[in-house]
Amino acid sequence: MTKRFRWLAALLAIVLFAAACGDDTNDSGEAADESGDAGDNGEAVDQTQGGDLTFHMITHSDDGPFWSVVKRGAEAAADALGVTLVWMPGNNDPGQMVTDIETAIGEGSDGIAASLPSPDQLVGPLQQAVAEGIPVYTLNSGANDYQAIGATTHIGQSEDVAGRGAGLRFNELGATKVLCGRQEQSNVGLEERCSGLKETFDGEVIDEFVGLDADQTEQINGIKAVLEANPDIDGFLGVGPVIAMSGLQAAQDLGIDLVIGGFDMTPELLGAIEAGDIAFTVDQQQYLQGYLPVVLMFLEATNLNQAGGGLPVLTGPGFVTPENAAGVLALSEAGTR
């Protein structure tokens, strides 16, 4: 009995230790910048004038593959400029984001960059930040609302524009009827991607929710069911990286050829593009969505520059195709694409 428990204790200790390590690595930006810049890098402060600048990046990040690239971009920019970046992931919880914005205002932030997954709740607090004289930028989502807030500009990709780009691609590739598969039932951004596709694509578009990413078996079979019910479908657009791979699997299961497009990137998806199984993926180059706001906030704070001229700064859509997949794959493994 006691022996068993000693073993259990050892296991627990390992788990706790590992968890602690994980924290360290994941939040390196926060931790390193907060302690490192204020202390050890004291000299750097004078040279760059950035040492006493603190920027807050408040997003609905779930620290998934997409957002970790944004985070890396922001951290790289903060490192290069020698400023402090506070990364506040809201984990898809607008309430949390409101609290974070209020915290940032209370701390006297020198610049706030925020994403706007649900504008109704977030516009108010950000307007308050503007009223306090804090420069505000929106990123990723918020193209329709940044002007109402009084933000300097929006850095991101319009989902609609990305969808339209995908539609043109499908036209080029000769598809006639495309299934636009969604992995979430109600997500405005995903629906905009599909409606953008409908705008530019010459053929017919079927727009369906086919199953969650958390259950890929169901997702694959959901796609199969639609494909079987509509045998004339010859193209598939998965509006996420996992669902794009599910589409490929479904097509292979049924033994049919589809022109497959995806959104965003994972190494598997890039591998499939490199192998020619998937035609393209829409890349919104989210590294820029992390990097650019920090640079623009820095320039506004130190040099009073205001970029964008009232228009959003677009980071995409870029396309990854079999031609450039290998290069992007290498960068993706490094975590910057």
Binding site: A18, A19, G22, T25, N26, P65, S68, V242, T266, P267
Partner: peptide, 16 residues
């Protein structure tokens, strides 16, 4: 742990 270890070891949320 799934998210943490995946990102810690392969720097991705997908493991393959």
């Amino acid at each position: 742990a799934k998210l943490g270890f995946s990102k810690l070891i392969v720097e991705q949320i997908q493991v393959g």
